[in-house]
Design a protein around this nucleic acid. Structure first.
Lengths: 236, 236
DNA sequence: TGCTCGCCTTGACCTAAATCAAACGGGTTG
DNA sequence: CAACCCGTTTGATTTAGGTCAAGGCGAGCA
């Protein structure tokens, strides 16, 4: 479910369309509704490195990523960091908010996103009940993912964590066995609950074992996907 | 938001009421609807130790806990276990499902719950749109919680994990500074990503430091809540 | 072409928590 | 009441991964 780059009003309609999975539905949104929605909807762009959601600030907006990648993380007072996820095009952000945002969001690459105010989202949902359904589905899916990440962070070894990370990314990559990582080693480490040194060492161990090739720091080729998936699952 | 023990039909109405937060709404549910819902709704009881949701089985039902406590966990093929959460009265289960259940659920104490089939849930949601809204809110809240647990599992020390666990449970306990744990040390360990030995040692360290008292294995008194909260947050 | 600045890798060493191994209740059973 | 079981505690030892400390390497720049 990818959303493409449009002007604000069309994005609102696009948002709505997510729920019904049919392009034709755009036509049934009355013009005056689109106008009204446009006042609650906005298209934004950020450069790599810019932070657009700040932890502990009031959660006033809801976002849909349309282009680029972002990093979501939570911080501890002494600077320890946990990356809770990476957002790619089509992903919703701000759902997890409960009064205040529970995380920071920062652009990893040039980023485009569609912003909807809380009020605008309510309006959208009342006009397109299927959007609400879609958000519920999305939230459920994210909860499943979160459970998988708890297992990873609580119980998996460094090797299993890296194998999980690689197969997860290969799963959504276009060319299925070559992945290009838009994030640094530090981001990977904070995502997997490891240090950069361990990430580096473990990737090299996987390379020595003939499971991956490291073309470039950011470009990794999976040589034996089934074996990696087996490691990821903690294959007995 | 606690749900009490009722017959099946009333529980369906009760489910609906969650969304509107008003007792009077029961009255507006037409009798024929109640009858129809009753065919999709069921009240169940389990003894401590019984498993009522099995990982990887098709997610056909949706549950609301009405009495008792349950444990949710995911397993790895070699037996490693991650407890992803504990369910107490009022909690929804089965939202995270995406085709198949992503976790096991087992009763920790004698447990009562209300079961609704997927179809029944759809029917309920179409009749009470506010229920869907309520579920979305609930899912968002759980996502926030999940992010906090990722930080805990990925970055906190054993001491911080136990302090987080204790303050989290004190937060919802009736008598605010004495908590009674319905789970074993093994469950706590698997919840916090530690071993039972580390849980035991760390609890005793907190006791030696005058932060808690351990009346009984399952009964813990918090002597200095602010200090524990500070430790839990990783207080600089 | 060489400089510099961020990443990333590699090596040596350390430590928090895991593992292994007894022993200790405290409740139930014969 | 003794024997047993199961969950827990406590102690000794090990280890996976963290920390500290050099280097290396590639991209942008003069």
């Amino acid at each position: 479910m990818l959303l493409r780059h449009h002007d604000a009003a069309n994005l609102a309609a696009e948002c709505a369309r997510c729920g019904v999975r049919s392009a034709s539905v755009c036509a049934v949104v009355p013009d005056e509704d689109i106008e009204q929605l446009a006042t609650y909807t906005q298209h934004l762009e950020f450069e790599a490195g810019q932070t657009f959601i700040n932890q502990d600030e009031p959660a006033e907006d809801f976002f849909v990523v349309t282009e680029g990648h972002a990093r979501l993380c939570t911080l501890m007072p002494d600077g320890r960091r946990q990356v809770t996820g990476f957002a790619s095009p089509g992903q919703f952000l701000g759902l997890a908010a409960d009064g205040n945002y529970a995380f920071n969001a920062e652009a990893l690459t040039p980023l485009k996103l569609c912003r909807v105010t809380r009020h605008g989202l309510k309006l959208l949902m009342s006009q397109f009940p299927q959007l609400e359904q879609r958000l519920l589905t999305e939230a459920s899916r994210e909860l499943s993912v979160a459970q998988g990440r708890m297992l990873l962070l609580g119980r998996k070894t460094a090797r299993e964590r890296l194998a999980s990370f690689l197969t997860e990314h290969a799963g959504m990559a276009a060319c299925r066995d070559v992945i290009v990582l838009p994030m640094t080693r530090t981001d990977i480490a904070d995502y997997l609950g490891l240090t950069i040194e361990t990430v580096s060492r473990t990737l090299n161990a996987l390379r020595r074992d003939g499971l991956i090739e490291i073309d470039h720091v950011t470009r990794i080729r999976l040589l034996d996907r089934p074996a990696l998936e087996d490691i990821a699952a903690g294959g007995a």
